[in-house]
């Protein structure tokens, strides 16, 4: 396999994996729900983005033609991730979840 492509695919896989892991670490260790919300919405989306980029490069190289199907998954996730985060944040405010004492400002009553 072509060295350069193989290197790029490997790099994309590793970057994607690391970001997916970081997002999940945030989910597991941050102290309150609103803070936990930050990890998955950003890092996990980029994590999938990385693996999808890898798959894109890999298959395009193999078939000697641009394979763009995977972009649809990434596009879909980029559109939906903020929406689900928004809905979950609303649900959390509705239930008046505990937040860390030093949080400035206050959530709205639902």
């Amino acid at each position: 396999m072509d060295q350069v492509v193989e290197f790029l695919v490997s790099a994309a896989i590793l970057v994607g994996g690391v970001f997916a892991l970081v997002g999940s670490i945030g989910l597991a260790r941050l102290p309150d729900f609103y803070l936990r919300l930050h990890g998955p919405t950003k890092a996990s989306t980029l994590g999938v983005g990385g693996t999808i980029l890898a798959s894109l490069l890999f298959f395009s190289w193999q078939e000697r033609a641009l394979q763009l199907q995977e972009v649809l998954i990434a596009l879909f996730l980029f559109i939906t991730a903020p929406v689900s985060a928004h809905m979950l944040a609303k649900a959390a405010m509705h239930r008046d979840l505990k937040r860390r004492e030093d949080t400035r400002g206050r959530p709205w009553k639902q």
């Binding site: 919405t41 950003k42 959530p107 709205w108």
Partner: peptide
């Protein structure tokens, strides 16, 4: 705008009045 805010640095949009 809300989606952009959710995807970028350390901010998540939580509600619109």
């Amino acid at each position: 705008l809300a989606s952009t805010i959710s995807l970028t640095p350390g901010t998540v949009s939580a509600d619109v009045s």
